[in-house]
Design a binder for these strands. Structure first.
Ligand code: FES
Ligand code: FES
Lengths: 144, 144
DNA sequence: CAAATAAAAGACTTTTTTATCTTTTATTAA
DNA sequence: TTAATAAAAGATAAAAAAGTCTTTTATTTG
């Protein structure tokens, strides 16, 4: 479904958001620990998220990453996915045809298009705030 | 969604089935041409499909691959996917947690589980015959 | 039976994805 | 203003996925 990179990115954003809810800025080490990802690789991912203005980054002592509450209410999961994996998941053919189109449909097009629309809806409507609260409340988990 | 290998496998099966509908056995070259796949790689994929009894293989002159009409009415897309990609798509967590469970749900679990169930239903209920007829009738396509 | 045909099997190569290690830059606070 | 801290940037490395090439085995038909 998502690349490993994208999975890490989504989890990192949710974790950062949940910590930002209690005014805590978090470093790469914290993040890697919280989402069970390799530390250096997580750093690379954070660079991309930061460049795409999905997270705010602060260098130096007491630095780290954060997502202001106002921002996390706006940012959708779809933005994170687009930053990491592009928009393949939103528009490409399930059987790998060069482009998905009703005019030249693959044998799964009609059924697959529905599923893809559901995925798109999920990602486009869910904000980081929506998922961060469940984590903060101990209802959902990012590892195991 | 699916690996490249799995996409080729699904398309190959649909093509073979559609040709079997008109009593035509097809070789690797035909298949590769019909689904726009690398020939040698397609050969490898056919070996797996053959070992898993999804297609029948015949060596020697006038040999090739076929799927008897009775068999293609039984075989589901899910079998092809399992043979190539395992059952990850049917059971694994969308965010890559070690296992998907309601007891330890990731933040997307409830929404993702629905989508995964839809995908499973599509693959488990669609037979090769179902998709082969559309191709044979020129309503669906395997390339471009 | 011999020659031709076509898939199976095995050994490799290339590309992409995932991951690591080192150096640099920015920031803070003593 | 310098030492410590933490992310950014850059250069590699390892693993997995995708793809190729060569040899072997099975089958058919003249
Ligand atoms: S053409 Fe394959 S999903 Fe639309
Ligand atoms: S735990 Fe993630 S999808 Fe079920």
């Amino acid at each position: 479904m998502f690349s490993k990179t994208c999975e890490y990115a989504i989890k990192a954003c949710i974790y950062i958001a949940s910590q930002s809810l209690v005014q805590k800025r978090v470093g790469i080490k914290d993040i890697a620990q919280a989402i069970e990802s390799p530390e250096a690789f997580t750093g690379k991912i954070m660079q991309v998220l930061s460049k795409n203005h999905i997270v705010d980054s602060v260098k130096g002592p007491h630095g780290g990453f954060e997502i202001p509450e106002s921002a996390m209410k706006e940012k959708r999961l779809a933005e994170v996915v687009r930053a990491m994996d592009g928009d393949d998941i939103f528009k490409s053919c399930g059987l790998g045809l060069k482009e998905c189109s009703g005019a030249n449909p693959c044998p799964l097009h009609s059924q697959f298009a529905k599923i893809r629309a559901d995925i798109t809806k999920l990602l486009e409507t869910t904000s980081l705030y929506d998922v961060a609260t469940g984590l903060a409340d101990g209802l959902t988990f990012l590892k195991r």
